[in-house]
Amino acid sequence: MSLPETVPFLGWAWDDLLFLFFAGALLGTGLMVVIGRNIIRSGLWMICCFGALAGLYVLLGAPLIAAAQVLIYIGAISVLVLFAVMLTQSKSGPVGLVFHHQAWAGALAALGIGILVAVVVAGTAWPLAETARTPSPTEELALLLFRDYVLPLEVVSVLLLAAVIGGVFLAKREREPEETIVPAEPARERMPAPAPAVGTRELTP
């Protein structure tokens, strides 16, 4: 079975159709994330948004990125976010007031930034850009990653380790409330004096 050269009736290329579909899905779900009243639904919409983005990556000829997108964002980060949502929900359920009182100003600013970037992008000639998309083969990426970019790779792995430790440390529940109330004075004495330029010391009572 083979598809027609173009989309039936419309006469578009299939790529264009897919692009429109994914683009629409991306923006639609993205909007649902930020305006959704229920935070859990926002999280679920975010997963859909990430999925649409993975589709766009495939369309751009970057299947490895698309796979990473699915694994990292949909598989890891979204789950993390959903867990956090569940850990922080008040017993009273979703809050009535979703938006800040500055939401209208935020909307204007966001709209302004979007229009600004869009106008600039549309007004730029992009002389190096070609019309044909060049797919990036996975072997090539692997060679680059483990040969030219091996040092950044290792740095990122250290960063992830630090993030894991930091996350565990921050989210860990203190065992005894006494330990939380550390007297300020001895602590300051034990620690080396902060540099005078820091200035936070003056602010602390």
Partner: peptide, 20 residues
């Protein structure tokens, strides 16, 4: 935080638009 972030956004807009 969000008041400051709004400030950043507006500042960014002002700077970029004036540049253009």
């Amino acid at each position: 935080v969000q008041n400051y972030a709004l400030g950043i956004a507006i500042g960014l807009l002002v700077v970029a638009v004036s540049y253009l």
